[in-house]
């Protein structure tokens, strides 16, 4: 460990309690969502925690008090025959069941709000942005959310097809024909709809600050939708172990304004390389992404996404030499955000 990091380490050690609490540290990504879906997920994390702590907290405190009070030798009341009580037993079954009922209700709300395929959190956040004052009931948990087939759906939207390989991310923008590798660029406040598949093994798409996880499986296609509410760079990576290069399998998500996004599209469309089926095979060769070097391709051969699925379904395997990661001694440069 280089010496210049040491003071920071000690500092962090000293403030460990603070870090454990998570408090306001910006690095606690899940506490600082910048997208409607992630925000909904965080929201329900808090609700869930709050309801549970209502049960667990008192129980912990009560147990602690009991332990202090009824130690042997403190002459507190000793009642060896206290071993049955209808009322208490009814309560101890009833209260958790009621709690589960309440939690299931919130679960029901949340599962549709954050449904990867069709999160109602996105139209809801768009509706809140476009309509001046949210109605009184809408902020309440007991109000109906606008469904995804509501009025706000027809706005601008970005489609991205995601293919994971060992161990790179290929992002195809089917409308513009641009393909990027290890760099996702999306406009702010615009729903982004992903279709995801894998050329090799299972991965998990995750951008902690923007959206939760969805599995990426070979031969199958999953979907995910997100919306970013603030421009900036966000880290994305795979959450499901996928082999030797897994730890380096990150990508940067850049959220830009819509105007900047259009400019980026124009610029990327001038990139010299093209993404053909053959070019994809080259990318799909096992590569460890030690030096983060995003690639841009101006034009993408039609149906690449379907092509990859079809190839996997008919037995195409991008074999990975198991020991390729054993001798990783190259000097490297990894660009790190935050």
């Amino acid at each position: 460990m280089p010496s210049r990091d040491r003071p920071r380490a000690l500092y962090g050690l000293a403030l460990i309690c603070l870090c454990l609490g998570g408090c306001q540290a910006r690095s606690v990504w899940l506490f600082h969502p910048h997208g409607a879906v992630a925000a909904a997920e965080f929201h329900y994390t808090v609700i869930d925690f709050a309801i549970m702590i209502l049960i667990v907290g008192p129980l912990l405190v009560a147990t602690a008090l009991i332990i202090v009070r009824y130690r042997k030798g403190r002459n507190a009341r000793y009642d060896p025959h206290f071993k049955k009580s209808r009322v208490l037993e009814a309560l101890m079954w009833g209260v958790p069941i009621a709690t589960v009922g309440v939690l299931t209700y919130f679960s029901y709300q949340a599962v549709y709000l954050a449904d990867p395929y069709d999160p109602t959190a996105i139209p809801r956040s768009l509706a809140e942005k476009s309509r001046p004052p949210p109605t009184a009931g809408r902020t309440s948990h007991f109000a109906a959310y606008p469904r995804s087939n509501g009025t706000v759906r027809h706005g601008p939207q970005v489609d991205v097809n995601v293919i994971t390989t060992d161990w790179q991310w290929v992002f195809i923008y089917p409308r513009t024909g641009i393909t990027t590798v290890d760099r996702l660029v999306v406009p702010v406040d615009t729903p982004v709809h992903f279709r995801l598949t894998s050329a090799t093994v299972v991965n998990d798409f995750l951008i902690p600050e923007l959206v939760g996880e969805i599995d990426i499986m070979p031969g199958m296609r999953t979907k995910l939708a997100m919306i970013a509410s603030r421009p900036g760079n966000y880290r994305g990576y795979s959450a499901n172990f996928s082999g030797g290069g897994f730890s380096w399998m990150g990508f940067t998500t850049t959220v830009v304004s819509r105007r900047a996004y259009r400019a980026w599209t124009r610029k990327a469309a001038r990139a010299p390389d093209r993404m053909t089926y053959a070019a994809f095979d080259k990318i799909a060769k096992p590569t460890i992404n030690l030096a983060e070097k995003p690639m841009y391709f101006s034009r993408t051969q039609k149906g690449l996404f379907d092509h990859v699925i079809r190839r996997v379904l008919t037995g195409r395997v991008y074999e990975t030499p198991l020991r390729m990661t054993e001798n990783m001694t190259k000097p490297l440069y990894v660009k790190v955000l935050h």
Binding site: Y117, M220, D306, I309, R310, L313, T314
Partner: peptide, 10 residues
Amino acid sequence: TRTMMPHLMP
């Protein structure tokens, strides 16, 4: 219904 792509199978 949500993930499989039967039409891509020959």
